[in-house]
Simulated scan of single mutants.
Amino acid sequence: MSPLIAVLLPVALLILLALSIVALVLWRRVWLREKARKAAERERRAQLAEHLRILAGSLLDDQLPLIEGAIRIGALLEHYDPHLHRSERLQVFRELSEATAHIPTHEAWKALSRTERRQYEVLFSSLELKHKAAARSSARWLLAEGLTAHP
């Protein structure tokens, strides 16, 4: 073995060992970040599921106006599980959200004239009459099956 090879071989082995250690440290960081990301996602979904349970229960107990409950449930479902949100069983929440999307909220609602507010309230009443039974049925299904089938 030539003296050059005798010197370069241990140096190459040390470099290889150092790079292997760096690679292992980096892979461990990636693994830990992925583990933390998955845990955060599970926690987020659990919180959304709990909020959905509260809203659906409040809607069924008439503690929440139907239109407001449907809009809130629809928005949370979209973040909780897009497939569940598009489910035929929960279509009423999407329909009510779409039917009321043009209505001003918060400060814009307060800025409306009494006549304008009354027109929207008439719309709310007609939508509630038309969709109340379906919304209640969907809320019951969501509590009984929808959230348990999509953990």
Rank of each mutant, 00 (worst) to 15 (best):
L9Q: 14
H131I: 09
L48E: 15
W109D: 08
Y120M: 06
L19K: 12
L4V: 14
L9W: 10
L32M: 13
R118E: 13
E145H: 00
L129Y: 14
R89V: 05
R44T: 04
T100Y: 05
A108C: 06
G74C: 02
E107D: 08
K110G: 13
A134I: 00
A18E: 15
K35V: 07
L52P: 02
E116N: 11
L24R: 14
I5Y: 00
E145A: 01
S87M: 01
L48S: 12
H83Y: 10
S125W: 08
E95N: 02
E34Y: 10
V122H: 06
D81F: 05
R72E: 02
E128L: 05
L84E: 03
A101F: 08
V22F: 09
L24Q: 15
S58V: 02
I21R: 13
E116L: 08
L77W: 00
K35M: 13
H51S: 07
W109M: 07
T100G: 04
A70Y: 03
A12H: 10
D81Q: 01
E145T: 00
E116Y: 06
E34R: 14
E128M: 01
Q63K: 13
S87Y: 01
I54Y: 10
L123G: 11
G69L: 02
L96F: 01
L64F: 08
L17G: 13
A149R: 11
L24N: 12
R72A: 02
T148E: 08
H106M: 12
A108F: 08
P151G: 09
K110M: 12
A39S: 07
W109Q: 04
S2Q: 03
A149T: 06
I15Y: 11
G57I: 07
K132W: 08
L17K: 08
D81T: 09
R114K: 10
E78W: 05
H79T: 05
L129N: 12
Q119A: 15
E128F: 04
P10K: 12
